[in-house]
C-alpha cells in the first residue's frame, strides 16, 4: 500500500515536471517502484524484466533521444482544462467499473478457476520446467513468443532504417 502511494506520488511528479531530464530520472524511479510492487505481487519474472527493461533500457533510450533533441518542455499555449476533464471523466467511469470487479485476491474469482489449475497441475509433468511462467511462455505458447520476437525485430529494423538515413544525408552535406 505504501509502495502504491509512492508510485502515485512519483506519477504526479512526472506530470508536473517540465525538465525532461528530471522526467526521465523520475521515470526510472517509477519503474523500480513498479518492479518492487511486482515482487510483492509474486510476479518475480515480470519484476526482473521490468527492472532491466523498464528502468534500464527505456531510460537509456530516452536519454539517448534527449541527447539528440532538446532538454526542456515549453509552457503550453492553451490551458489544459479539456484534457483534464476528459481524464477525470474516464477515471470516474473506471472507478465505477471497479464495483463489478471481484475483490482483491479472491481465490474463487474466474481468473483463478479456469485454465490455470491445469497448468499448475500438469506443466511440470509435461514440460519438466518447474517455473510455470517459463513453461507457458517458451513451451505452450512458444509461437506467441516467436511472434513477439518478430515485433521486436521489426521495431529494431524500423529504428535502424529511420536513423541510418539521417547519417547518410549528414555525410552528403
Amino acid at each position: 500500500m505504501t509502495l502504491l502511494t509512492m508510485m502515485a506520488l512519483v506519477t504526479m511528479a512526472i506530470v508536473a515536471q517540465r525538465n525532461l531530464f528530471a522526467v526521465v530520472v523520475f521515470g526510472s524511479i517509477y519503474s523500480f517502484l513498479m518492479a518492487t510492487v511486482l515482487v510483492a505481487l509474486d510476479a518475480v519474472d515480470v519484476a526482473m524484466t521490468e527492472a532491466s527493461v523498464g528502468a534500464g533500457m527505456s531510460t537509456v533510450l530516452l536519454l539517448a533521444a534527449l541527447h539528440l533533441t532538446r532538454g526542456d518542455e515549453v509552457k503550453p499555449l492553451h490551458r489544459p482544462l479539456l484534457p483534464l476533464l476528459v481524464a477525470v471523466v474516464i477515471g470516474a467511469a473506471l472507478v465505477y467499473g471497479t464495483v463489478g470487479l471481484p475483490p482483491f485476491s479472491d481465490p474463487q474469482a474466474a481468473i483463478h478457476t479456469h485454465v490455470v489449475p491445469r497448468y499448475l497441475n500438469d506443466s511440470l509433468r509435461e514440460t519438466g520446467v518447474p517455473n510455470v511462467v517459463t513453461s507457458v511462455l517458451a513451451s505452450y505458447r512458444g509461437y506467441d513468443t516467436l511472434g513477439e520476437t518478430t515485433v521486436v525485430f521489426t521495431a529494431g529494423a524500423g529504428v535502424i532504417a529511420l536513423l541510418r538515413r539521417r547519417r547518410r544525408e549528414g555525410q552528403k552535406r
Partner: peptide
Amino acid sequence: SNPLPHVLILTAIVVGVATLALGLAIVV
C-alpha cells in the same frame, strides 16, 4: 499466484520497449 497474467505482461513489457524505441526514433 496466477502465472498467466505474468506471461502476458512479460510480452507486453518487451513489446512496449520496442514501440518506445521506434517512437523515439521517429521523434529524432
